[in-house]
Design a protein around this nucleic acid. Structure first.
Length: 427
RNA sequence: GGGGGGUUUCCCGAGCGGUCAAAGGGGUCAGACUGUAAAUCUGAUGGCUAUGCCUUCGCAGGUUCGAAUCCUGCACCCCCCA
């Protein structure tokens, strides 16, 4: 417990606000503490936005503390108004249950639930809220919440200023989260709650409730929200969020996302998301300055994170796919290998007889969906933007025949820098 | 209620009887350069069975050998005066 976790987090830029900057460092070094962070099951997978909170829990565990990962089966039924501009749709019970389960599965990658010393704990607040009667809850918990205090919280205030307003349901959200903290304190001795900076209001609500209800002092700490140097949200691509589940975001895409992080953001990402030491990170920062083209930082970041989220195997495949995609000619591979590398890529099945008869490159591009008209396909080829198995197509008269197959049945077409499509020729 | 202006290809915006698939800019796409980056430069940007054909300039009619361009009606938008 002689590791100063608070100082480490501060150096990493992970502390946005805490209830007591002066007290917490010593408190954390003087004994094993139990802390928690909550995750609402709004989807069947965690995404990059959850990564900061997840890594914070992981760091605490590695520093010897005991983390509790709370999945909000109950709070997820209500909807957290924090940081949201509009009322959300309620999810069905079945959807929530499924989401809780798959999110819990992903958390096992970040936390150690089997350690003898300080095993992490997984809880679902549905378990203690399900049978808590409305009347009892209002009498026990509601009584401790002055409306004027609730109205002053940013999450509520922002919504009241909008036309859409806020429903009583979402307005009540903070009571549930506040009670979670009290419950975890009573049952697991949890004394610290962490979360994104938008959670501050909910965290302090829990601290207040604990004081009023039980006369105990709890603590809170928030992490900055993850933004890029241009002010936009990190973890978003044109096609949506970057997810941790391989079904939603393949290991290859996940790896690529980090490889493509801007120079201006990569240092922050290394601090937030990796467990590299301060020396290592500062050496990488220096490398970004002296030799940006090498992108050592991005490579290291992508490697560390892909390994953590998708394992050694996922990392290997992502790297292999990267090599193939950004390498030279694609040939002599098997259908299975290609299918794996190009798992995200759209494909189209065509009868093999057509290939045997020879398909014009123009038709092939249109069939594969890489061009919306023949005119566009022709233009692409004439400008040198069309590739067959990663080799530039020479002219619009090019014909595809079985000799061009990259594997048993597949041809790899590409338009421009990175738009790929597969054509499959089954018998 | 009266007067005036507008509606153009993804967007903005020129065109005001033939040489208009329609200037220019933006966006987008591709190429060069590069770090799978940014910036920059270059090219492309309605469709097709393609030295030609078809569809497109608010909608519907009309004049003309020929209309995005002229006329009539309709719809919508904007401005000014009441």
């Amino acid at each position: 417990m002689n590791f100063d976790i608070f100082a480490d987090l501060r150096w990493r830029g992970l502390i946005h606000q805490s209830t007591d900057d002066a007290f917490l460092p010593g408190w954390l070094m003087s004994g094993r503490r139990t802390l928690y962070a909550g995750f609402d099951p709004t989807a069947d997978s965690l995404h990059v936005g959850h990564l900061v909170a997840m890594m914070v829990l992981r760091r605490f565990q590695k520093a010897g503390h005991r983390p509790i990962a709370l999945v909000g089966g109950a709070t997820g039924m209500i909807g957290d108004p924090s940081g949201k501009s509009e009322e959300r749709n309620l999810l069905s019970r079945e959807a929530l249950l499924a989401n809780v389960q798959s999110m819990q599965g992903q958390m096992r990658r970040f936390l150690d639930f089997d350690s003898s010393e300080n095993a992490a704990i997984m809880v679902n607040n549905f378990d203690w809220m399900e049978n808590y009667s409305y009347l009892d809850f209002l009498r026990d918990v509601g009584k401790c919440f002055p409306i004027n205090v609730m109205l002053a919280k940013d999450s509520v205030k922002n919504r009241l200023e909008r036309d859409s307003g806020i429903s009583y349901t979402e307005f009540s959200y903070m009571l549930l989260q506040a009670y979670d903290f009290v419950y975890l304190n009573e049952h697991f001795g949890c004394e610290l709650q962490t979360g994104g900076s938008d959670q501050w209001g909910n965290i302090t609500a829990g601290i207040d409730l604990a004081r009023r209800l039980r006369g105990v002092q709890l603590y809170g700490m928030t992490n900055p929200l993850l933004t890029k140097s241009d002010g936009t949200k990190m973890g978003k691509t044109e096609s949506g969020a970057v997810w941790l589940s391989r079904e939603r975001t393949s290991p290859f895409k996940f790896y690529q996302y980090w490889i493509n992080v801007e120079d201006a953001d990569v240092g922050k990402c290394l601090r937030y998301f990796t467990e590299l030491s301060r020396d290592q990170i500062e050496a990488l920062d220096a490398a970004v300055k002296t030799d940006p083209a090498k992108r050592e930082s991005q490579r290291r970041l992508a490697e560390e994170l892909t390994r953590l989220v998708h394992g050694d195997d996922g990392l290997r495949r992502a790297q292999q796919a990267t090599e193939v995609l950004f390498g030279r000619e694609i040939s002599g591979l098997s259908d299975a290998e290609l299918g794996e590398i190009f798992s995200d890529v759209p494909s189209k099945d065509l009868p093999r007889s057509r290939l045997e008869a020879g398909i014009g490159i123009i038709d092939a591009l249109v069939e594969a969906g890489l061009a919306s008209s023949k005119g566009e396909a022709r233009r692409t080829v004439e400008q040198g933007g069309a590739y067959l198995n990663n080799q530039r197509v020479a002219g619009i008269d090019a014909k595809l025949t079985p000799a061009e197959l990259a594997s048993e049945t597949v041809l790899v077409l590409r338009s421009g820098r990175k738009k790929y499509a597969l054509l499959r020729f089954q018998a």
